[in-house]
Design a protein around this nucleic acid. Structure first.
Lengths: 364, 364
DNA sequence: CTGAAAGCGCTTACAG
DNA sequence: CTGAAAGCGCTTACAG
């Protein structure tokens, strides 16, 4: 944080520059610059005098001038490319942002938030940010296979943290071997592990007909979940799970749930890709006179506040999104300082068991 | 949005400046500047030639250099000063932001988001932003009486949109008479009207013992709601409503609800200051074996997604937060352009009637 | 260790 | 209408 509330020298006046400080301290501009930036070139005595004068005058650095010199601008970029109407509904982002700010706030860096309507729009934002040096680094979410944004960011030389699992074991092309730091590290929560956990738990409860209401199909994290679901079902000798794709919205969640529940054979458990859809699923179950968890078990993803607001409360795959945000923020800071960061998974997925899951009806 | 995807001239290279454009076009730097900024001083012919060359070279303005000259920086500031852990829970902010971006995105301006831990921290952020010219204007929320931030922003000369109702009829001191545009306009949703609406509806259903679980007591909007509640209750000849203050969190909402419901006389209806607390109230009612809406009517505020996820769905005081955000954004843009904006209320409060309200038990 | 000077990329009076 | 020049606030070689 900036220094505590100082009385404004003379409000409305032009604010002091290093020339003013130099004049007041009786030294050269360069001496002031060295002192202020803690660089060699001034005696200890002069240094402290200059600092005192600067503080007394209420001097503050000009971000514009420093940015002109190529310094960090103290801003990280985040472009959200989901339809705006869905954003208010995703606690994930607010929690991510609040975790990021936990780290960035004390560093005095803010988050530049933009909402884009399309992938080209999002890329235009990156171009503009890179050209204007408006941000030090960006975070990229919802990555698709051969995502054009990644190549663009590399060309632009804009450091980025990619919030996505890699597409295969070997990892994406500009990914490098593990232990190889890069200016575009991938940092992901362990989607596959979360899915396996949920599936094993349901299987242990005797469920066999397990369905899934997934988010956007082309995202890497969706694909990671899907692959894990299929593999684990096979390993557990369960029938192939039915998967419905949605855009994460309440509406599509409701539709998918309804079609699953009126289908044959009816699943006894459904895993959802977010809390919002799982919560609306409860209403569909009620509408169809199916008791949860008696006749239908429901597992949600994210474990946001929503999972605790419903009745019954939702069993949820839990990721510590705030801690994830903090990790992402420190990666951004490292990149902004010109250093490199290693790719890798973040944290452990857990299962928060609440009241929406129970033994399968046949097994009961 | 920036122009569509152009192939990078030579990626990794130094990006072109107006000097490069001038050289390539065979004109003076000043001519380029005039042409690029659509100012007089170049012939039409040269102008279009310069524009073509600039585009061909992939020239982009340097935000830093322009900011040095005092131009707009294309960034609006929003400091959130609620505890970070509560932010993920407030759909209000995400909806406000998404509404703002609806307007700001096409203007190519981003939102600088900071989370502050305290009022002094928040003020430090404003000082720093003002000194570094890091934002063009800011939005201020959760205003208290004699809020020090307002005087600070005025002194700093940082234009601001204040998201709060005024404290009294005459309005705050730096508020000016209606119809008087200012660099610090107040824009508020009609809290008083929303509260009156809710109260009249409950009274019409026969409720008399009506309680309220309020948010932070010192905020102007909380006070506006409280005043409206008291006045309207008196007008309707109802007993004075009991009011519990909270910090908007689920936990405090639960505590307040429980203490109200085990108190004597027990209220037959409770109005909540947000959706989160109202949703958790349903769980307290269940815990105490009180049926909603049979024995207890519940009204929430905000009408976010949460109101539709609970069972029963919540009757909610509805404000079009996204539209509000759009209005706020255009006010910010006007201020950033150096013009003034009039203070005033925004939009109409409505009541979205769902399943959490019914006739009062005595009247049933 | 210190001081005068050039330069970052742009805008804007100021003479021609 | 055009061109050479100064300046925004800072940093950084470069001589003393």
């Amino acid at each position: 944080m900036a220094p505590a509330a100082e009385p404004q020298p003379t409000s409305g006046k032009r604010r002091p520059t290093i020339s003013d400080v130099a004049r007041a301290a009786g030294v050269a501009k360069s001496a002031v610059s060295y002192a202020l930036n803690d660089k060699p070139g001034v005696s200890q005595e002069k240094r402290s005098h200059i600092l005192a004068v600067a503080e007394q005058l209420g001097w503050q650095p000009s971000g514009a001038a420093r940015a002109l010199m190529g310094a960090r601008v103290g801003l990280m970029g985040l472009v959200l490319n989901r339809p705006a109407r869905l954003l208010g509904l995703e606690p994930f982002y607010m929690e991510l942002i609040s975790g990021m700010q936990e780290v960035l706030g004390p560093l005095d860096v803010a988050l530049a938030l933009q909402i884009a309507e399309s992938l080209p729009d999002e890329q235009a934002v990156y171009r503009s940010w890179a050209a204007k040096r408006e941000v030090d680094a960006v975070v990229v979410t919802d990555v698709k296979r051969r995502d054009p944004r990644l190549a663009l960011l590399r060309d632009l030389g804009l450091p980025a943290v990619v919030l996505s699992p890699p597409f295969d074991r070997a990892g994406p092309s500009d990914f490098g071997p593990p232990g190889h730091p890069t200016a575009m590290p991938w940092l992901w929560t362990d989607d596959a592990a979360g899915m396996r956990l949920a599936l094993r738990y349901l299987a242990a409860l005797g469920h066999r007909r397990i369905a899934r209401v997934a988010g956007t199909r082309s995202y890497a994290h969706t694909m990671a979940r899907t692959a894990a679901l299929r593999e684990e079902a096979e390993r557990l000798d369960l029938p192939e799970p039915v998967i419905c794709s949605t855009d994460y919205s309440q509406e599509q969640g409701v539709d998918a749930t309804r079609s699953l529940l009126i289908g044959e054979p009816r699943p006894t458990a459904i895993v959802y890709d977010n809390d919002v859809m799982a919560a609306s699923a409860l209403q569909v179950a009620r509408e169809l006179r199916l008791s949860v968890p008696g006749q239908l078990s429901v597992i949600s993803w994210d474990d946001s506040m929503i999972a605790r607001l419903t009745a019954p409360k939702l069993t949820s795959i839990k990721v510590d999104v705030r801690a994830y945000g903090m990790r992402v923020a420190s990666a951004l800071d490292t990149l902004a300082a010109g250093a490199l960061v290693e790719s890798g998974p973040f944290g452990l997925a857990g299962l928060e068991v609440r009241d929406s899951t129970a033994v399968a009806p046949e097994a009961g």
